[in-house]
Nucleic acid binder design. Structure first.
Length: 284
DNA sequence: AGATGATCCTGTATGC
DNA sequence: TGCATACAGGATCATC
C-alpha cells in the first residue's frame, strides 16, 4: 500500500512524464472515484488542455499542478497504481482514469479496491488541508514530535497513523519505525520519555529515507509509474515477518492487533512495559 | 474533545 | 475440486 516513500517515488516518475505536457484527451474516467464539488464529466472537461507545471506530494496525496494554477488531487488508497504508458485502446480491469498527453504517452490510474480518489483542485486551495507535518522536512524535529505525542493516551501506533498528526506514515513504516526505536506499538503516546521520543524521531526519518532510496516497498500490489517494484521489502525488520526471527535478537516476530491494524513486533526488542492492560485482560 | 468502530471494495488466502 | 467465508487496509463518518 503506497505510503510516503512509494508516493514520493511515483511523484518523481509522474513529474518527468507530465511537466510541460498538455492533456489532450480524457480517454476514460470512472466517475465513482471522483470526489469533491467537481464531478465526472465536469472534471474531464476541465482537465483537457491543461499543461503540467509540477507534481507535488503532501503526505500520501499527489497534486498534479497545472500552469493555470488549478490542479488534480490524487490519492492511491491501498491498491491504487498510477502508471505512465503508451495508448493501447483497451484498459485493464479496474482502470479508473486514462489521460492522453501531448507527448504521445498516457497516464493511467488503476485501483482494484477503489479506495483511491481524484478531485479537482481550484486555487487558492493548494492541496489537502488539516494534515500534520511532513516527517522528512526540517520542521519535523524531535521536539515537534514530542508535542504531538504529549498527553495522549492513545497507542503510539494510532497517533503515528493519524494523518492529522504526522503526514505520510502508514501501517508498514509505523511498524518499522517502532521496531527500530525499540518501542512497543501499544504504549500510550504520552508515556514516552524524551529519550524515547528522540529515538522514534530518528527511526521514522531513517526508515523513510532508506525506503525512498529503495524506491518503496513492494509487498503485494505496489509498483512505480513504470511498473517496477520497490525493493525495500527485503530490508523490512518486522512487517509481514510474523514467525520469522528478529534480525536483531532472533526472537520470532509476533503479529497482534493495535489500533485496529495488523501490527508486527519483536516482543523482546520492543518490551511491553508500560502498555495499558485491555479491558478484556482485566475482566478475565 | 478525543478515541474507537463501522464502512467502503476486491483479490488472496484459508476452511470445509 | 470447488465453493464459501475471512481478511487486509486508508480515510471518512458515526458513535461512544
Amino acid at each position: 500500500m503506497p505510503e510516503l516513500p512509494e508516493v514520493e517515488t511515483i511523484r518523481g516518475d509522474l513529474a518527468q512524464a507530465v511537466v510541460g505536457r498538455i492533456i489532450t484527451t480524457v480517454e476514460w474516467l470512472d466517475a465513482r472515484i471522483v470526489r469533491g464539488d467537481v464531478r465526472g464529466t465536469d472534471l474531464a472537461a476541465r482537465l483537457v488542455g491543461r499543461q503540467g507545471a509540477a507534481v507535488a506530494r503532501r503526505g500520501k496525496f499527489l497534486v498534479w499542478r497545472f500552469t493555470s494554477g488549478a490542479g488534480l488531487l490524487l490519492h492511491l488508497g491501498m491498491s491504487g497504481r498510477l502508471t505512465v504508458g503508451s495508448p493501447s485502446g483497451t484498459w485493464p480491469r479496474h482502470t479508473h482514469l486514462v489521460l492522453a498527453l501531448s507527448s504521445g504517452t498516457t497516464v493511467q490510474l488503476v485501483d482494484p479496491r477503489r479506495f483511491g480518489r481524484v478531485a479537482w483542485l481550484e486555487p487558492p486551495a493548494e492541496g489537502p488541508g488539516g494534515m500534520g507535518p511532513e516527517p522528512l522536512s526540517p520542521r519535523f524535529t524531535a521536539e515537534r514530535l514530542g508535542k504531538i505525542l504529549a498527553g495522549r493516551r492513545a497507542p503510539i501506533k494510532a497517533v503515528l497513523l493519524d494523518q492529522r498528526r504526522v503526514a505520510g506514515l502508514g501501517n508498514i513504516y509505523v511498524d518499522e519505525a517502532l521496531f527500530r526505536a525499540h518501542l512497543h506499538p501499544a504504549r500510550a503516546a504520552g508515556s514516552l520519555a524524551t529519550r524515547e521520543v528522540g529515538a522514534l524521531h530518528r527511526a521514522i526519518r531513517r526508515v523513510l529515507r532508506e525506503a525512498l532510496a529503495d524506491r518503496g516497498t513492494t509487498f503485494l500490489d505496489y509498483r512505480d509509474a513504470y511498473g517496477q517494484v520497490g525493493v525495500h521489502a527485503a530490508r523490512l525488520g518486522v512487517y509481514g515477518r510474523a514467525g520469522e526471527p528478529c534480525r536483531r535478537c532472533g526472537t520470532p516476530i509476533v503479529r497482534m492487533v493495535v489500533a485496529a491494524r495488523g501490527t508486527h513486533l519483536c516482543a523482546r526488542c520492543q518490551p511491553s512495559a508500560g502498555v495499558p492492560e485491555t479491558d478484556a485482560e482485566t475482566n478475565v
